[in-house]
Simulated assay, not measured.
Amino acid sequence: MSDAPHNPKLDDRPGSNTEKDPQDWVSGDEPMTGAQASYLTTLSEEAGEPPPKEDLTKAEASERIDALKGRLGR
Results as ranks from 00 to 15, higher is better:
residue 26 V to G: 09
residue 72 L to T: 09
residue 62 S to G: 01
residue 30 E to F: 10
residue 44 S to R: 03
residue 20 K to E: 12
residue 43 L to C: 03
residue 28 G to V: 05
residue 45 E to F: 06
residue 71 R to C: 00
residue 14 P to A: 07
residue 31 P to H: 10
residue 40 L to E: 02
residue 58 K to N: 02
residue 55 D to F: 12
residue 74 R to D: 00
residue 5 P to Y: 03
residue 16 S to C: 09
residue 13 R to I: 15
residue 48 G to H: 01
residue 44 S to C: 07
residue 68 L to R: 05
residue 32 M to H: 04
residue 24 D to T: 08
residue 8 P to A: 03
residue 6 H to E: 05
residue 65 I to N: 05
residue 34 G to H: 09
residue 15 G to L: 15
residue 31 P to M: 05
residue 35 A to R: 13
residue 45 E to L: 12
residue 36 Q to V: 02
residue 50 P to C: 03
residue 65 I to C: 02
residue 59 A to Q: 04
residue 57 T to S: 15
residue 70 G to P: 02
residue 32 M to G: 00
residue 41 T to W: 04
residue 25 W to D: 05
residue 43 L to W: 00
residue 7 N to E: 08
residue 64 R to A: 14
residue 25 W to S: 05
residue 21 D to K: 11
residue 34 G to A: 11
residue 45 E to V: 12
residue 10 L to I: 07
residue 39 Y to G: 01
residue 18 T to I: 11
residue 41 T to H: 10
residue 10 L to P: 05
residue 74 R to V: 08
residue 12 D to M: 13
residue 51 P to G: 15
residue 3 D to M: 12
residue 62 S to P: 00
residue 6 H to C: 03
residue 60 E to S: 07
residue 32 M to F: 10
residue 19 E to H: 13
residue 40 L to K: 02
residue 26 V to H: 10
residue 15 G to I: 12
residue 41 T to S: 13
residue 21 D to M: 04
residue 14 P to N: 06
residue 59 A to F: 03
residue 31 P to D: 01
residue 68 L to N: 04
residue 50 P to K: 06
residue 64 R to T: 09
residue 64 R to H: 07
residue 25 W to H: 06
residue 5 P to Q: 03
residue 36 Q to G: 02
residue 44 S to N: 05
residue 34 G to Q: 09
residue 49 E to D: 09
residue 38 S to H: 13
residue 22 P to C: 07
residue 55 D to I: 06
residue 18 T to H: 11
residue 1 M to Q: 09
residue 33 T to A: 04
residue 56 L to P: 06
residue 14 P to Q: 02
residue 45 E to H: 11
residue 31 P to C: 07
residue 15 G to F: 14
residue 37 A to C: 02
residue 71 R to M: 10
residue 1 M to A: 15
residue 26 V to F: 10
residue 15 G to Y: 12
residue 25 W to A: 07
residue 8 P to L: 04
residue 19 E to G: 12
residue 4 A to Q: 13
residue 15 G to R: 14
residue 1 M to N: 08
residue 61 A to S: 07
residue 46 E to T: 14
residue 17 N to I: 13
residue 24 D to L: 13
residue 8 P to I: 05
residue 7 N to K: 11
residue 73 G to A: 06
residue 24 D to P: 00
residue 42 T to Q: 11
residue 1 M to C: 08
residue 52 P to L: 05
residue 39 Y to Q: 11
